[in-house]
Each structure stands twice: as C-alpha cells, then as structure tokens.
Design a protein around this nucleic acid. Sequence first.
DNA 1: CTACTTTGTGCGGCATCTCAACAAATGAGT
DNA 2: ACTCATTTGTTGAGATGCCGCACAAAGTAG
Lengths: 403, 403
Amino acid sequence: MRTAKLSLVLRQLRDHGPRSRARLATELGLTRTAVSALVAELADLGLVRAAGVERGGMGRPGTSVELDGAAVCGIGAEINVNHVAVIALDLAGNVVAEHRIALEAHKLAVDEVLDRLVELIERTDDDVRASGAHTIGVTVGVAGLLDRPREVLTVGPNLRWRDVPVGSELRARLGAAYPVSIENEGNLAAIAEAVPGDPNRQDILVIFGEVGVGGGIVAAGRLLRGHQGYAGEFGHMIVEPGGRRCGCGRVGCWETVCGLRALLDGAADPDDPMRDPALSLDERLAELNRRADLGDTRTIAALDAVGNWIGIGAAMLTNALNPSAIVLSGYFAEIGHHMRPAIEEHLLAGVLAPQAGGTRVEFSTLGFTAAVRGGAAVALEPVFDDPTLVAPPRAAALLGGDR
Amino acid sequence: MRTAKLSLVLRQLRDHGPRSRARLATELGLTRTAVSALVAELADLGLVRAAGVERGGMGRPGTSVELDGAAVCGIGAEINVNHVAVIALDLAGNVVAEHRIALEAHKLAVDEVLDRLVELIERTDDDVRASGAHTIGVTVGVAGLLDRPREVLTVGPNLRWRDVPVGSELRARLGAAYPVSIENEGNLAAIAEAVPGDPNRQDILVIFGEVGVGGGIVAAGRLLRGHQGYAGEFGHMIVEPGGRRCGCGRVGCWETVCGLRALLDGAADPDDPMRDPALSLDERLAELNRRADLGDTRTIAALDAVGNWIGIGAAMLTNALNPSAIVLSGYFAEIGHHMRPAIEEHLLAGVLAPQAGGTRVEFSTLGFTAAVRGGAAVALEPVFDDPTLVAPPRAAALLGGDR
DNA sequence: CTACTTTGTGCGGCATCTCAACAAATGAGT
DNA sequence: ACTCATTTGTTGAGATGCCGCACAAAGTAG
C-alpha cells in the first residue's frame, strides 16, 4: 500500500540522510517513477523538501531530498525526582523548544507535579505552534516501575509514588489534541541512544546511573519493553547476596554497589566538604573528577571499585544480550572515563564470547536530555510508520483553498 | 503489495487457526472480496485448503480455510555433543520426518560429524519428497558460540570445536537445492517455545539445561540474536565469584551451580550407583525423580540448592527482560517440578516489579526436540514472509499444463 | 414458508506500480 | 567548442490489484 512505501522512503531519508530520488529508487528497489510520485506526496505533506544538488560522477546531477522538520514535532517529557523537563524535536531531530524546572517531586503532591508538567508541555506546544509546526504526539517518561498495559506507575520509589494512573491523569489534563503515551524513563533514554540507520547502534544496552540505576535494551533497532513494560530494571539485579541494603528494601542490588551513593560513600567521608548537601550533582562530580585527575588514591580506589561492579553486571547482561555497545549514561557519562579500564577488564573476563562478543563500552553524550529526546523520538515514530497521519490539518487547508 | 497481504492472511491462519474468509476480512481490516482473491491465490500455491464449515449463529455459515502442509516443509537440524538430529515440519507444524543418531561428537573428526548430519538431512529431504512436498530450507543449530555474520562456530567447548565454518562446510556438501542457515542451539530451542499468536508466548526467556546451561530470548515474538549472534549464553553469567571452576575456564559461572553436574554432585556421592557412566541421562533423572518422590532428604536438598540458584539467575534476567514466562527446558523440564517452589521463591524475592512482573515459571513439553523444531520453524519463516516463494516449481508445472 | 442474516463471488471504477520514452543537465573525448 | 555518453527526473500508456456495490447461496428465527 501507499502508506508502506511512503514510510519506506521517509525512513531511508532519516536513517541515511539526504539523497536523490534516483538513489532512493536503487536503494529501496523501486523505480524512479514511483519514488518521484512518493517524494511529491511527502513534499505535499510538508515532510520533505529539496536540498541542493548531489554530484556523483558522470551524468546529470540529482536533486537531493531531505527531511523537512517544519511541519510536525514530537514532544518528549520527563518526571524525575529533582525536575520535570520537556523537549520538542522536529522530524529532522532539531530541538525546537526545551523547558525544564527543578522541583522536589517527593515533597509535592502528585497532582501538583502533574500540573506543573502539563503547564510545561502546553508551553512547549505553544512554542511548536509559534514555529509553524504542529505537535503530533507527546511521550512522557516516568522514573519508576510502569505497568504499560494499564499505564499505571506501580511503584516509584524515588518519587515516592504508588499506583498512580499517570496516563489517564495526563490525558484528562491535556485533552485530545494529540496522543499521549507513557514510558519508563530508562527505556526512553535507551531509545535516544539508538541512532536509526547506524548498524553499530541497533543492538545496545543503555545503563543509566544516578542514585538509582536503570536503563533499557534496544534490540534490532526496537525497544525491548517486556511483557508488562518492566524491562530494563538492571539496578535491582542482586549481585552481592548479603551485601548492602537497597532503597527498594532488598539486599545486594546492583545499584547499591554502582549507584551514585556507593561512589560517594567510597570516595569521601561523611564530613568531607564534597558531601555538603548544598552542592549540586554536577559540582560533586566535577570535584571527584578533579581529585581523580590529581591522582588522589582514595578517589581512584572508589572509582575502581564502582567500575569493577559495573563491569561485573555489564558482563552478565552481555552474556545474555550480546549488544554492539554498552552505553553508560547519567553520572557514569560524566566520570566514567576514569572507570573504563576496570569496566573493560571485568567485561572481557566475564563474557564467554571472545573479545566480549565485540561489545564496546561507550559513554553517552546526551547528558540529562536523553530521556526527553527519546520521548520525542517515540512521539514521532507514528509519522514514520504512516506519513499520511500529518495530513488532516493540511487536507482541510487544501479543501479550503480549492473552494 | 500483494506479497504483504498474502503474508498477512497466511500468518493469521497460522497464529489463530482455521477460519472463514469473512472472519479473516474483518480481523485483518480487508474486504471480503480481497480476502477471497488472496485465499484463492494461496490455494493455488498449495498453502491453504478448505476445512469444513464454520457455524456461527445466524446467516449463511462460512467455509473454513486452514493451512495446508502438503506443499512445503522446513527442515531443522542439530549438532550436539551426544547426537545429531533432524526433523521436517510442514507448514501446519506436523512432523513429516524425524531422524536421530547417537554419536560422541568430540571423539570424531569435524568432517565426519558434518558428513553424518548431511546424510541425515538428505534422508529427511527424501522423506519430504516422498510425501509429495518439497523442502523450502534447512536451519542447523549448533551447540556453541556462533558468529552469525561469518557463520563460524567460534568456540564449541562441549563439542571441542574451534573456528569451524559450519555454514560454508554444510552448503558445500548440500548444494544449492535449498537455503541453509545456521543458528545457536539455545536460540532455536527458544523459538520453538514461542507459540505464534499466543500473547503469553511472545516475550519469553528459555533456559536450557544439560551439562551446560544456555538458552534464548524471544522478545515481541522475535528472536533476540544480539549484534554478532552470541545472545543467550546465560550459563556463563558469573553468579558466584570465587565459586566453582567452570568448563569454560572461568570461575563461578551459573552453570557450575545449576547445570546437571551440580545437581548430580549434590545428590549423590561418586560411588553412588546412580553415577554409573553406563546409565543414560533419562535413567539418572528417573532415579532422581524416584528418590525425590520417596522423600529422600539429600536428593531434595540438592534439588532445592539447584532450584535456588536457578531462581537467582532467573530473577536477574527477569529484572532486565520482564518476560511473560520463563520456560525451563532440557533436564530442568524432566525434574523441575521438584524445584518449582525454590525457583519461584527466589524469583519473587529477586525481581523489583511486584509479583515478579507477572513472569511465570513453566516447563517445556518439547523434550529434546526443541532445537530441531525451532530450526524447522526458522526454515519455514520465509514462506510466511513471502508466500510466493513456493511458486517456482509449481509455476513450471502450470506452464507445462497450459501448453 | 417467509423474513432476516451472513457468506462468498462477479463487475466497474479507482489508485498505484511498472515499463518505455524523452527532455535536461553534466563530464569526457576530440 | 562541439558531440557523445551517462545519469536524472518526468510524462504517458498499460497492467495489476483493491474497494464498493450488487447478487446468489445457505443457513436461522418465528
């Protein structure tokens, strides 16, 4: 059907960048005629536009076609312990708007947090409209266990939420102007790291570390959600029976040995000035980096200890999943370069496949925008599945113009 | 395109059983007209046939349509430590032929094992032809680490094979009559347990235990192979640092505490008659079952110990993957009912999501045919992707008849 | 026996893809 | 400078396949 081929062309442009109609035809196994018609339709929908010429040896040069972000945006949002954040990305992945407010979610009522987030989402939607585009959907990531079939946050230990029907609450506030979907925060961060079209970013394991440790799995380019949406809770794998007590109430969870608290406990005594609660996370990490750079033995030992544990857990997951890369995100990304030797040592030692099955250790460059970026990507996905979804407003305009 | 819709109809019949054209139309969102044409074409290809009437209340009853296995078969094969085996399944999943020979693979030359397997595959293909069908493909599962992009068995510790190019070797022997693909044995067993169409069998974790422990992951109905095909090596997750030495050379692998050897070591002294090497695996397991049924404390303690370890590892994987079911296969399936309480206890305790995220513990009923069945399913998959693949021989026959 | 419901199949129309042909835009060769 | 070969993008003709509609077939309800 037409939808399927439009989708094919649009994805090819997203995954491999601008290219001529003729190249699209040969790469996708279609005729130049068909591609011309498809591109014309996508251009009518406002999803692609001409992008200069493509010189390639002999013959007439082709006119390059590229994604046009001007028509639609996806909005990604995040409810986390210390902040709520929203981002709008256009079809080409450009940031159109970005908002973020700090708040202590566990000190506020659930309703209030949701209200503040909705306010931010609506402001972002206003920005999108001011740019001339329209919002195609919103995806909200929450820090906690999310029952996807019911769209209920079952347990959010750090938010101190229980059984909150986030999906229906948000939809009630936002109305039906655009679809709203809910995801786990770690899973959204994983999607953000999976670059469409890059063969080395189709099977990845994202481990996101702050106080808690979570993450997500992307396999064959698709997010692995699990049966009820609980996949990716790496932080609560029990790796040290009889070890430290975890915030979840159990003992020996992975995050008790590689979460931020474990690092701080190992690197500094309670009376160390670095542990002043007034300091922000970034400031503490900067101080740790400084000490490590100066060769402070205690800091380095603490980083090694945490790195060892990261490697042990990563090796287990690598035996099971054989990803092409393990992407370390969150605080790991800020300070992980000091842990790389320890991580890689245990990864090589703990994975059966030679050379750790080709799995590489990488660090995220998305900072703390990973989850919202992933959310925006999820919100845009339906457009790539069926580009005609963006039609309604435009069809109305055309009808009006024809009369 | 036509191919896509043919595929849609064929899959619907596979996943949900025989049904009328009208039902197919409503379920798939097509018109009755289109379905009639598609079914007629599938019938011409020999893939479906009429199957009685379907009474459903008022109105004219529909004529039910079902898969017709008579046209094509997929062949699954297996190279394991103690045997090579081959099975042929038709499109409807019926066993058309089955062969198996016992051999000690590690005592024979690689070439000889491959020759014996090829002989078995060719005999099976003869059986398929004798039944009036033709073989659409062969998938061979090997017990060991398989580099899928290169189709080379990197390391097969139990086979004692290293860097064997199984793919090219088999293709050289079998010719080009049908495509040959190679998979890891545990992954094939996982595919066999994933029942198409059953919503509770789309996200499963299969753990296959013999002396070694392996398995596979099916997520959203698709096998998770990993970047290089090494996914599913659960047995070598290090769960007990400083524990027992594993056959792979490392220490504390999961299979050292839940593999068959761990159970036998725990349940019986070396001079126990049960450990007579002359006994078959089935006989030993039967004896263990007998002792457990009689309440032998040592046997029960050993089963509990192994069950505890299974539960610990299963809980880690469940935190990461949230499957709807953990299917225990291999020797676990024979004797696992005695371990169920221990497994479930640790699963509930070790998984963050309430009620272990809904993950149930189940036991395989496929016995030791799981891998070959999975292989046959993989070989048949291309037909469901593009039903016109079975056309060539038939098209030739039709052309001959028309002239 | 009639009225009603549902199924499966023809037929015309519409959308879409392919094939062949052609004008346009460039590099290579003389 | 000019021609030729090459590649691109578009146009028109033909074929294919799906949808909407109408209708015969085959059952149930009363």
